[in-house]
Amino acid sequence: MTIRSWDIFCTVIDNYGDIGVCWRLARQLAQEHGHAVRLWVDDLASFARLAPEIDPAAPRQRLAGVEIRRWDPNPGAPFDAVAPHDAVIEAFACHLPEPFLAGMAAAERKPAWINLEYLSAEAWVSEHHAMSSPHPRLPLMKYFFFPGFAHGTGGLLRESLLGAQRDAFLSSPAAHATLWHRLGVDPIAGALRVSLFAYANPALPALLEQWRDGATPIQCLIPQGLAARQIGEWFGAPAPVQAGASFHAGNLTAQIIPFVRQEHYDELLWACDINFVRGEDSCVRGHWAARPLIWHIYPQSDDAHHVKLDAWLERFGRSGVAPQASHALTQFSHAWNGYGTAPDWASLHAQLLALTSAMDRWQRQLQHLGDLAANLVAFCENRVK
């Protein structure tokens, strides 16, 4: 089955993670594969934080080669009749509108139907990847597609030119200067540079105290959002904390930066010595930055996120990381995600060089899995009839 066009349905759950993945995938399918892509999004205001050209009030618009449609995912909500494309992705188990499902079933050539799942390093992902599930009423077959860190999964999203773009940025003082100007940041000579993108975190005050009282100057760059609000409160600043605000205490300088579009977020990760990331999209970009990362995994009420975090830590630890470095990362990550003691920055800091080498080596290994977009295209063309 030749695939040349896609419908991607997305509901925005935690503000940016879901739409971040879908927008990145949609752009790659359009720009690298030359396919027609129609991206359905329920929350265009959140989308506009990642792509400022988006008009939150427009029901239909086009950007970066992708047609963008607003939709209402509530059961029974009105949905305009459109002919489904060759492949249909319901991202992260959102439910397709019934009129659209009926159109898929009525099509002479049934679309390839993919449920794009959340990223996980757990062993069962390889076992369930590419499994099929027939619709209970309609002549349609849905396939489950899992991103992952191992063979037998869909791999990770990665644009074909990303490595070259990173190398070009790292070798260009002008590109660095442009980034800092865009963010309103003056780099501090000799400081360890940290990007911090996180959910509200009870462990953050203890970390800020350690940075303040430590021997190493820390320049922490925090995009506007939950963590920025928490840092402002810690420094006693009046709310709301705006981009451009800068706070200083001891050896810690914390600067609030604008929430940037995806491409510029990559540059921020490349320019920092260690990156605190959250959710799925920023975690994957943190891997390709080849810098040590601390993952604030999306919290779940039954603590299932602890299992997912430990699966990632274990898999990374088996990739050739020095035992002391792996231990320091695990202990710190546990504390950062709420099931360990207070974060031990000194132990983690002592292993940053080893972790940098290990992350660079591991991201090279991950490239051998192929990228998620290309793997999706191949799966739909070779497996779905």
Rank of each mutant, 00 (worst) to 15 (best):
L313P: 05
W211F: 04
A254Y: 00
L44P: 06
Q31I: 08
G320N: 06
G338A: 10
T330W: 13
L39K: 01
S120P: 05
E98G: 07
A378N: 11
N201T: 06
P238A: 12
P97Q: 12
A203I: 04
Y16D: 01
S172V: 03
I89S: 04
A374C: 10
L313H: 07
T330Y: 10
A271M: 03
I231H: 08
W288N: 02
V37G: 05
W345M: 06
V41P: 09
I218Q: 03
G155N: 08
C22Y: 00
S301L: 14
A342S: 13
G152F: 00
A57L: 11
A249G: 01
L183S: 14
W345R: 11
H264S: 14
D14Q: 09
F235H: 03
D167I: 07
C283H: 14
S357E: 14
G250K: 03
L50C: 11
S246T: 13
F9K: 04
G20V: 04
A26P: 00
G286C: 12
L119F: 14
A83T: 12
W295L: 12
R285I: 05
A164W: 02
L376M: 14
P240T: 10
V82E: 13
V37S: 01
D186S: 13
E159W: 06
F146W: 12
A58V: 11
G286K: 10
N375T: 11
N382T: 13
I222E: 07
F316R: 04
A243R: 09
R383K: 15
L269S: 12
D186F: 02
L348R: 09
W270D: 12
P136V: 10
V277S: 01
H264F: 11
L162R: 10
Q365E: 15
H306K: 15
W180S: 07
F149V: 01
G214P: 02
L313W: 01
A206H: 13
Q242W: 00
R70T: 09
L372M: 15
L179Q: 11
A243W: 03
P205E: 11
W113C: 13
Q331E: 15
F276Q: 07
C10N: 08
H85Y: 04
D303L: 12
E127I: 00
E381Y: 01
N201I: 09
V185H: 11
I188N: 01
N74I: 03
T153P: 01
H35G: 13
G154F: 08
H349W: 02
A87V: 06
C380A: 15
G65Y: 07
D7R: 02
A77P: 09
W6S: 02
W113M: 11
A112T: 08
A107Y: 03
V321G: 12
L353N: 07
S132Q: 13
I188M: 08
F146L: 09
D344A: 08
D266T: 05
H334I: 06
P78Q: 05
R27L: 07
R166V: 03
H85A: 14
L179I: 09
W336P: 03
E122C: 09
S301K: 14
V277M: 04
T178M: 05
G250E: 06
W23Q: 00
